[in-house]
Design a protein around this nucleic acid. Structure first.
Length: 268
DNA sequence: GACCAGGTATTGC
DNA sequence: GCAATACATGGT
């Protein structure tokens, strides 16, 4: 029995940008040069596919991780229960890095649009109208003007710098994966346009570093409200998962039951 | 027509 | 070091 896995929560929590939901809970996505179609409510079937099983991180014991998080930090109980269907995807590191460079000061629908155009312009076509995410090498061959024409705006030179450094192995993503967290962040931040937040996103969503804790405006606010003085390291080796639970909870649940009341502040 | 969006680089104190 | 400010673009 597959627990703690919900397709919609996982694909709609802002960690990926190339999945689309159509009617009846059907999701279509492009991953590593292939198109996939998966069905809400039939999550169990994904266990039969080795690639997707790994992509959705189904081998990992999330219920155990959740129990451990709540044991050390009981305030996480509500958020972790609310968002317990989220899995941290095993995405392509380069794609995740680019996606979160694009994400800065941007909104999710527009991020998706830019990525879609970027793929069509620079990625390999592998099916009618379907394109793979462009490699670092092919992106490095583009000009800043070409990238601006896709709507990337001031991020165009950032993408180029990332492409050049990754294609030239000045930043080796697989080496970054194995580095201590601080060193990994510093290495990614050599890329223009990559600050602490984007670096942590690349680490958590691209390199599956579950100890990375991306702190955006939402999370910073939530931390100040619910965990004043607490540092992310205190959440332990799965701090990134705690971050996801928090992020999803404050963005969804708070709208129905606004917090800020001191009575709720102790129970996230 | 401001204001905002899963930030970052630059500038000024 | 830390607080402002500009930055492209499209949607409310």
């Amino acid at each position: 029995m597959l627990k703690d896995f919900n397709l919609a929560q996982t694909l709609d929590c802002g960690q990926c940008f190339r999945w689309q939901r159509s009617e009846n809970g059907v999701w279509q996505g492009i991953v590593n040069g292939k198109q996939f179609v998966v069905q809400e409510g039939e999550e169990e079937a994904l266990l039969q596919d080795a690639f997707l099983s790994h992509y959705f991180d189904l081998e990992r014991d999330y219920p155990a991780i959740r129990r451990a998080l709540v044991k050390t930090t009981p305030e996480l109980e509500k958020a972790s229960e609310f968002a317990c269907g989220i899995r941290i995807l095993n995405q392509d590191p380069w794609e995740a890095l680019c996606s979160f460079i694009i994400s800065q000061n941007n909104n999710i629908p527009r991020i998706k649009g830019i990525i879609s155009r970027l793929c069509a312009a620079c990625g390999e076509p592998f099916e009618q109208g379907v394109y793979d995410f462009p490699s670092a090498k092919s992106l490095a061959a583009a000009t800043e003007e070409q990238l601006r024409a896709l709507g990337t705006g001031f991020r165009a030179p950032y993408l180029l710098d990332a492409a050049r450094k990754v294609a030239g192995r000045q930043v080796n993503l697989e080496q970054v994966r194995a580095m201590p967290l601080d060193e990994a962040r510093e290495t990614l931040m050599q890329i223009k346009g990559v600050g602490p937040k984007v670096a942590d996103c690349a680490l958590l969503y691209g390199l599956h570093r579950l100890d990375a804790f991306p702190a955006d405006v939402w999370i910073k606010r939530a931390m100040a409200t619910y965990f004043p003085g607490k540092s992310p390291e205190e959440f332990g080796p799965n701090a990134g998962i705690a971050q996801q639970y928090l992020f999803h909870y404050i963005r969804c649940a708070e709208q129905e039951a606004p917090v800020g009341e001191s009575a709720n502040a102790q129970a996230v």
